[in-house]
Design a binder for these strands. Sequence first.
DNA 1: GAGTGGTCTAGACCACGGT
DNA 2: CCGTGGTCTAGACCACTCC
Lengths: 237, 237
Amino acid sequence: MSKINVYDELQKRILSGDYNIKMRLPTEEMLIKEFDTSRYSVRKAIKQLVDDGLVYSVKGKGVVVLENTLQSQKLNLNLGKIDNLQALNANQILNRKTTIASFKLIIVNEKISKKTLFPIGTPIYLIRRIRNVNNENLALDINYFNAQLIPDLTKEIAAGSIYQYIKDNLQMKIAVVKRQLRIEPANESDYKYLSLKDSNCVGNMISLAFNDDGKQFEYTESHFIPDNFVFNQIIQF
Amino acid sequence: MSKINVYDELQKRILSGDYNIKMRLPTEEMLIKEFDTSRYSVRKAIKQLVDDGLVYSVKGKGVVVLENTLQSQKLNLNLGKIDNLQALNANQILNRKTTIASFKLIIVNEKISKKTLFPIGTPIYLIRRIRNVNNENLALDINYFNAQLIPDLTKEIAAGSIYQYIKDNLQMKIAVVKRQLRIEPANESDYKYLSLKDSNCVGNMISLAFNDDGKQFEYTESHFIPDNFVFNQIIQF
DNA sequence: GAGTGGTCTAGACCACGGT
DNA sequence: CCGTGGTCTAGACCACTCC
């Protein structure tokens, strides 16, 4: 009999409501016995469930199952881990298209350096891409890629997935992405490129991406039209 | 000689640039020796640094220090852990005021239940509060508190901090808050209560709060005017 | 006081990166 | 191959909750 994964099994039970009545998980000791494993493994699984926002550990009390796990899970279809466009609601997108609005190789000056955190003098690809879904221009991505770390970019690559290129062709590992979201008045190019309709604001998601050498290889601003994306967060106290 | 905290010490060194040149932390074994502690404690400290977005662990390679830690830390003055208003940029707020726009005790109907996830029939306090900072109405909070879990609310309490009341008077522990942020067209009450100026959009931060029994005691929508708050996130791959 | 999760130690083996 | 971080086990003690 092969060992089953503690996390998968507990998640399944929680989501199917097996623990809803008493609002508690079995104690660590009971889980150790049931799954015939060590305390380390049980605690690792519980830690994952806590990160998912399904349960909460209380010292001296037990592991509490949060209410409305099923419904509030919908809140938590986390904006994926890959491409920036995935910040959009990815449900049944029928027809998506990427258009290159501009593609340049430039050198970082003081102004750009201040914004992107790239050192002055760094060569970078500056790419503006329009994300069209079902005939609406939902997002304008303004990418700054360090050309020393991400060399030989072309319009053709940019029309597809640059992240795919980074992983498959350059075999570079993406380690961490830091993001900040703000709401801003739409600027000239937002009006030009986005299907803003009556809105005069955009969401601006700023991303800094780092590879596994700790080097920042990307600064990106994604300008989104309202009503088309969500941003989730779980805070533990 | 009392033991120093591994996390605090490593964080201090990273932020002061001690490891920037080689972009690596010492190996776990070296840290175990230096701090005269167990591998568990060293790994716990590193885990915290990873969560802070300061470093990244790579198997077979080491713990890599991310570039621009100081600058991108600014990105990461995480929207605090307490009251919803802290989603605002909290720098040097001179003069803040809360005004109660409405205060009602109502019973959850089907429509409200669908939105708030409270069961139909639950008594709730429905409170609308205007957050005024330096003579601008920056946010409109629409709170739904389960009146069985948060009893005896008054306008006076609501004019101050309800979270303070929950913790100090009710001695209830807040366990988890799940949040979702969207951008929406401003509605009638947004125009009425907020200093929107020319903008016709608001940020809408939806919060579900749970106590340490796993019960959801709050559903809140915070409507913010643009340009006045940020939302941060760190994603590990 | 009994039972719970949180911290910590000591040790083993595995999987991956770079030489 | 060696050195790295990742996983896992077994066991001890601490801090908190609740009766």
